[in-house]
Amino acid sequence: MKTFFPDLPLNSGFYRTFEISAPANSIVSAQWPVAVTRFLMPFEKIMNAIFEIWSKILPERAIACSFNLEYLLTGGYDRRQEEKPIFMSYDWLPGGWGGRNGKDGCNVTTACFGTGLMAQPVEGQERVNPILTTRFEINTDSAGPGKWRGGVGVQKTSVLLEADKTVISYICDRERAVVWGIEGGLPSMPHGLTLRRTGTQQDDWLGSVFSDVALNEGDIFSRPTAGGGGFGDPLQRDPDQVKEDVIDEYVSVERARKDYGVVLETIDKDLCEYAVDVAATEKERETIRASRHGWARTDPNEVAKMFQAGDVDTLDVIRKYAVILDWKTGELLPNSTAQFREMFQKRTVAHWS
């Protein structure tokens, strides 16, 4: 409520004005012995649903969907510590909040329940755990495109050092129900962890929920967090703002063209110097406007084949064709796609000119 009424004091009297209806045997009132993850995954979906309701009541304060919190646990025997060799690493990452009416979403921010709960310092993690962080940076292209883009997420990559009998477990969400945009905005990207075994060059997609996967010394594991969904038609975003996003490495040159229809000339990549090609941008945006309704109706089976052949990437599949796949095999997930397309039509396509 503070999101929409920031000046109201929160006290017991405030909450007495609300009557909560939580139907039994539903996701908001699970009954024994239904398996649950306590409050970790459902509550963020509930909060985003509430945000969307209030966005219709107070459109001037509307906000798109935000990322979901994720948890990574790694445990085993640390050979560096003779007296206390058992270790347990508990790690979480920030991500992006949804684009807002008149403002971009907040970048690299804690989940909606954990105000002030930011990323743990890797120096402290490395001191107590045999895990080296080799990459921790802005996740380019993670923000959902829009007139007001979502906030960006992060990418973190780590390698297991001197450890034995180590396992890794992960719980997250939004691998299939990808963070959505509103008022014509586009979605973000799927969550999930990849694992590269030592001595190989292949990344194995493990997804967003798994437990007790064995790790060996030298194994590399990496996961992104999604950005927030976009607000408003991305073709209405000021090309100069898109250029600034590219300079800040929030958006790549390729996705600037694909998602925003903005064609940039690279003057000096090392110095982050770019120029908007105005004529090419106008032409690209006309092409996207004329084609995008049809793209969103493309046969999902054909999209799956294009993905498996390497003709389109994950962001094309989600943002252009509104299709959900098994991101490891490229196999079509028909039920998830049907649900995602229904959402995409309502929140995005219906608002395009």
Rank of each mutant, 00 (worst) to 15 (best):
T3P: 10
F4C: 04
L10T: 12
S12Q: 10
R16H: 12
I20D: 13
I20L: 15
A24G: 10
N25S: 13
S26N: 09
V28D: 05
Q31A: 11
Q31T: 08
V34M: 08
K45I: 12
K45D: 07
I46S: 09
M47F: 09
N48S: 07
I50P: 03
I50H: 06
E52M: 09
W54R: 10
W54G: 15
L58T: 09
L58D: 12
R61F: 02
I63K: 01
N68W: 07
E70D: 13
L73E: 14
G76P: 03
R79L: 11
E82A: 15
E83N: 13
E83S: 14
S89T: 11
L93E: 07
L93N: 04
L93Q: 13
G99P: 00
R100N: 10
N101D: 07
N101A: 06
K103H: 09
K103V: 03
G105I: 01
V108T: 10
T109D: 09
T109W: 13
G124P: 03
E126Q: 12
E126K: 04
V128K: 05
T134Y: 11
R135A: 12
I138Y: 07
G144I: 00
G146S: 02
R149W: 00
G151I: 09
G153L: 02
Q155D: 12
T157E: 15
T157I: 06
S158P: 11
V159W: 03
L160R: 06
E162F: 05
A163D: 10
K165M: 13
K165E: 15
T166Q: 06
V167E: 01
I168G: 14
S169I: 04
C172Q: 04
V178S: 01
V179H: 00
E183T: 00
P187L: 00
H191E: 11
R197E: 11
G199S: 04
D203V: 02
W205R: 13
E217H: 08
I220C: 15
S222H: 07
F231L: 01
P234E: 01
L235E: 08
Q241L: 05
V246D: 05
I247K: 15
D248E: 15
Y250P: 00
S252I: 04
V253S: 09
R255T: 03
A256V: 05
Y260K: 00
G261V: 04
G261P: 03
V262K: 08
V262R: 09
E265Y: 02
T266H: 04
C272N: 13
C272D: 09
E273P: 15
Y274P: 01
A279S: 14
A280F: 07
K283I: 03
I288G: 07
I288E: 12
S291Y: 06
A296W: 04
A296C: 11
A304D: 03
M306T: 08
D311M: 14
V312G: 02
V317C: 07
Y321H: 08
V323S: 10
I324F: 05
E331H: 06
L332V: 08
P334Y: 07
N335Q: 11
T337I: 09
A338H: 06
Q339I: 13
F340T: 00
M343P: 03
V349M: 04
H351I: 02
S353F: 08
